[in-house]
Amino acid sequence: MTNATEERVRLYETLERVGTEDRDALGDLYRMTSAKLFGICLRICGDRSSAEDVLHEVYTIVWKRAGGFEAGPASPITWLATIARNRSIDWVRAHGRRTMRPIEDAMDVADDTPDQTVAAEQAETAQRLYKCLEELNAPQRDAIHTAFVDGMTYAEIADARGVPLGTMKSWVRRGLLQLRGCVGDD
């Protein structure tokens, strides 16, 4: 496996080529990133057919927008993943969620085998976030995690966990405050 920096540079160069409307580059980009982005779409949309539609929309956006990508604080994969997450959330807010995952599944983060694309690039930030999340109590950690990974709102998480909305907000706000104190000093 190539190291994270090489991977990042290669992805950046591919995006640059996509920005010049190079069709082959779009094919390369798809090979390099589609499994990752499809994983995001599938997780948030909840069903394959919606996720396929959103994935198509994501690459259409990338095709038109790659020329505007600037190497800044956001790495290429983070940029692409953000587009995929935002468009997936947009989709579920408009169409509703097809399948709600059971609580046990959402809680069962430790058993997941995440890939290391982003962590490898931002190892320190990632490690600190996870260390700090560990220090929260389980419902707080679960809610913050679910909000990001499943793209769920306060109301959706409260509903899925059978907790009053006000209680859920209170938990999460206190959790976020603690999280800020923990990760904040960098």
Binding site: S34, A35, L37, I40, T117, V118, L129, V149, V183
Partner: peptide, 17 residues
Amino acid sequence: RFTAMFDEYRPVAAPEL
């Protein structure tokens, strides 16, 4: 800070481009 959680998503083989 939250971008670290992008790694929670497991890759899934996508349909043909």
